[in-house]
């Protein structure tokens, strides 16, 4: 056996370097961490917030060890140098994909791709990155159930940042559910537990007959609204609005 991620070897013995669960995958021994910051992997879709605006790129907080630069060429917009601040401001939320990781620790991200873009409205709930698989559920069963029973729209980042949009009541219920999942991540039967909770709380809209999750009674359809941003869509390259079913 050789030491894999989360382990180290001294004098022929393998020790855990992080607090976690041992998994033997010959020829490697892994320790899967139970806690800690999000460690980016290429291909991950993450939710981030803008922390700094430079002339050619933005810096995003994606809950990783370092801020991730989003270059203007990595967006669906055609931007001139120095125009970056007209598109994304400090505090704006975006969905991006981790593209490349350098040995220096630099995390390159892109906003070009399906399901990627700027997030309008909504709120961001944080869970441990280790809990993200539980939030998604097997084959997406957990998210599907949450969206069906609350009518909220969700964008789940692998980094444990989860964007939720919907009526205030829906956002509240989803936040409660996410808190429960975060606290009881190791427990089995979570999906049933969450379903029971959601059914026991009083929803603020019609209970069941929501056939299409992304367009519930509570959520507003944004396609008809005029764009409040300065370029007002005249450039023909306005940011794409995000839709949850694209994830």
């Amino acid at each position: 056996m050789r030491p894999g991620p989360g382990t180290y070897r001294v004098g022929g013995k393998i020790y855990a370097s992080v607090l976690g669960l041992v998994a033997e995958r010959p020829p490697l021994v892994h320790v899967t961490p139970l806690s800690g910051r999000y460690i980016p992997r290429a291909g991950d879709v993450v939710v981030g917030t803008v922390t700094d605006v430079q002339t050619t790129f933005w810096l995003l907080d994606i809950a990783a060890p370092r801020w991730a630069p989003l270059h203007m060429t990595g967006t669906p917009w055609s931007i001139e140098v120095g125009e970056t601040e007209r598109y994304l401001h400090v505090g704006d939320a975006v969905v991006v994909r981790v593209e490349n990781l350098e040995a220096t620790g630099r995390i390159g991200v892109t906003m070009v791709g399906e399901g990627l873009g700027k997030l309008e409205g909504g709120t961001i709930v944080r869970v441990s990155p280790a809990r993200v698989p539980r939030v998604v559920g097997r084959g997406g069963s957990m998210v599907e159930m949450i969206t069906r029973l609350t009518g909220a729209r969700l964008a789940i980042g692998q980094n444990g940042r989860i964007w939720v949009e919907g009526s205030p009541g829906a956002i509240h219920r989803v936040s409660e559910v996410l808190k429960r999942i975060d606290e009881n991540g190791q427990r089995s039967g979570l999906t049933q537990e969450v379903e029971a909770y959601l059914r026991s709380t009083v929803p603020d809209g019609p209970v069941e007959p929501e056939v299409r999750p992304p367009a519930p009674a509570g959520a507003r359809d944004r396609s008809d609204e005029t764009d409040p941003r300065p370029w007002g869509g005249t450039r023909g390259d306005a940011p794409p609005s995000f839709r949850s079913e694209e994830l």
Partner: peptide, 10 residues
């Protein structure tokens, strides 16, 4: 530090 998931010798 261990709770923060930081890798260390012990």
């Amino acid at each position: 530090l261990a709770d923060a998931g930081i890798p260390m010798v012990d």
